[in-house]
Structure formats: C-alpha cells, structure tokens
Amino acid sequence: MLDGTANIVNNDTLKIVMETYKSLKDAGVLTEVNSWDEYVGDFVSGNVAGTINGCWIMASIQTAEDQKGNWAITNMPSLVGASGATNYSNNGGSSWAVTTKCANPDLACDFLASTFAGSNELYDNILPSGALATWAPAGDSAAYGEPSEFFGGDAVSAKIVDFATKVPTNITGAYYYEARNAVATAITNYINGSDLATELQTAEQTVNFNMGQ
C-alpha cells in the first residue's frame, strides 16, 4: 500500500485473483509448468493456445518460425468482480533515476529528458534490438507503425505502446520479492486444498516478518 504496509489479508482483489486462478487451473484452462524452459517449450511446440505476459515474451514466441502468422496480440481479459479492473496490465520493465549523490543533477536530468523522455529517434533506433518503449509519443513514429509479419501483419509495437498508456499504476515497494514469494506460496497451498483466508494470513505474516528487520 501507499504507506508501505502489506495489503494481503483484507485485499479483496487478491482474493478474486486467487479464486479465479484456481478455477482456471481446475478447469484445465491453464497449464502448470515447473520452469522457464518448460514454459517457453509449451508455446513454441504449440501445446498451448496462448500466453499472458509482458511484451518481452514476443522474442521467445518468434523463435517458432513455423507458427508465423498464427499469433496475434490483444489486450487481456479483465478480472470479473474486481473494482477498477481494466483490460491492461504490466509485467516487468525498468526505470531511470538520478540519485542525490549525482555531481550534476541538472545535466543528468536534461540528458534523460532529451533521450529516453523526448527522442523518437532514439526509440526508433533501439526498436530492432527488441527494446520497446512505454513512452507514449514513441508509438506515433513510422518504425513503430511497421506491420509485423509474424503477428499477422499487425502493427504490434504501436499497439503495445497504446495499451501501455491505459495500464493503471501500482506501487510495488522495496519488498516486492518478499511479497511475491509469500503470495506464490499461498496460491500453491490454496490450489492444493488449503483454506484461502488462512493462507493469506500466513502470507501477510511472512511479509511483515521480512519487513520488520
């Protein structure tokens, strides 16, 4: 939460997420894999119909040359029953920051403002190597509008930048990995038949324990 406390036990959205995940898994809609190579292997070999992930997964998808033209990108289904749910989400990414120890903060800010936060040319140059911007104006350029043959002639880069402008913001905080692991443990136990409320309670205790050092 904004004040840095863990929001797990009374988080209604998280409860809906876990219930939805379990029902999708029980119904056989989702397939469960143990490792990254199994995950990539599943869609490269055509075992699954699709995957929900950040746009950086496109590079792995495109290694399956024989599936050219069969893939498409769309926005994700929204979570039914959760307030404020949208069809857009984000997974991964990185940030630029100027530290207080910086010798010349004005110069550093100016540099970032005229490159990553202001140069279509820069984004057009790094696009072929797979670096996709979430800086909205970058999506207007010709390079971003280029249709992708693999994805059925769709202008996927421009599409993703457009999606990115609609993603709601959230605050992950410094203890993101602690919380993620605790919630992952709770989901695993819940799928295996444990009580949801108890698992969320344990997860919050674990996160609070890790934060209280």
């Binding site: 143990n34 490792s35 203890y175 602690e178």
Partner: peptide, 27 residues
Amino acid sequence: LTNGGPANTSITMSHYIYDMSFKYVPN
C-alpha cells in the same frame, strides 16, 4: 531442480540464505 517449491517445501537452508542476501531486500 525445484526452485524451493512447491510452496517452500523443498527449499534448503543455503537456498534461503541466498534469497535473503541477493534476492530479497538484503540483510
């Protein structure tokens, strides 16, 4: 092999020490 899973039931002491030092907020 298991990445400590499922739900930390195969995690070893050294693995948790590693997580605590290099994956989580380091302590």
